[in-house]
Design a protein around this nucleic acid. Structure first.
Length: 256
DNA sequence: GCGGTCAAGCCGTGTC
DNA sequence: GACACGGCTTGACCGC
């Protein structure tokens, strides 16, 4: 089952390691995750903002125009590319691979950019089901004026990139867990060291309390200096000793 | 179906 | 402003 990043319950930054290192580029501020779960939040506006301005872009209307060639020069280059004799293997490869009839549509075979509506619908379907059965695939392809193969590829890519992003989130989470545990381990080691130094110190053992805390002798019930001769040896409650008070359980009771 | 990869297209930045 | 360059996104393909 696919899970969105938000399902993990993490609010972690992305772009961790991996192939993409947008944050490592000194020329580019880190502006967005490398992969986007919501197309409408990222890639689409960026592309949609640029594409409508192009007088050559067109909305798909049939399989034969499923590829949106935005630039005549691009079309020309593509035609040259596929018409070139050296590319005959390529022409054969693309479209007829596996003998899939879905791919045999001829025409412009270079990169398609899905329209906003197409992407949105694909996203919606993907949220419902990350995989499609053949019937769903054909139905969706018909709705979108795309070839079933294109829908299939879109879902394949979507699954792969969702998984990759989830892996990055998990990786980041584990990294933070590791850092946290390392800190905790360091702290415990230090604490252990302190305890050991106390344990092996030669008696009498003095336990130092914070300077401002009051100490009470369990025998005489006095607070502070207790039997200190400086305050007359009497029990003078709530007197904080000027110096840190040490209670020695081994010797104090004898002096009370 | 998945992982890896390629490549088109777009964008931001730096340089002139 | 034009151009070059590098990075990113994403459609498409290959091999398994």
């Amino acid at each position: 089952m696919e899970t969105d990043a938000c399902d993990v319950g993490l609010a972690l930054g992305l772009g961790v390691g991996g192939r993409r290192s947008s944050s490592s580029n000194p020329r580019r501020p880190h502006k967005q995750p490398s992969l986007t779960f919501s197309l409408s939040d990222d890639a689409l506006p960026r592309q949609a903002a640029a594409r409508p301005s192009s007088p050559h872009s067109s909305t798909v209307s049939s399989f034969s125009t499923a590829y949106t060639c935005t630039d005549p020069s691009t079309i020309k280059k593509e035609k040259e590319y596929f018409a070139a004799g050296s590319e005959e293997g390529e022409v054969d490869r693309i479209g007829s691979r596996r003998g899939n009839d879905d791919d045999n549509d001829g025409g412009c075979r270079k990169k398609l950019r899905l329209t906003k509506e197409q992407s949105a619908m694909l996203e919606d379907r993907f949220k419902e089901h990350s995989t499609l059965n053949p019937k769903q695939k054909h139905t969706l392809a018909k709705q979108l004026n795309l070839r079933p193969r294109q829908v299939e590829v879109w879902f394949q890519n979507r699954r792969a990139r969702t998984k990759l992003k989830q892996t990055e989130v998990d990786c980041e989470f584990l990294k933070r867990c590791c850092e946290s545990l390392t800190d905790e381990n360091r702290r415990l080691q230090k604490e252990l060291q302190e305890l050991k130094s106390l344990k092996f110190a030669p008696p009498p053992v003095y336990i130092q309390f914070p300077a401002a805390t009051l100490t009470m002798c369990p025998s005489c019930k006095t607070i502070g200096g207790g039997t200190d001769s400086s305050n007359g040896g009497g029990a003078e409650p709530f007197v904080v000793t000027p110096k840190p008070h040490f209670y020695n359980p081994f010797v104090h009771s004898a002096t009370c």
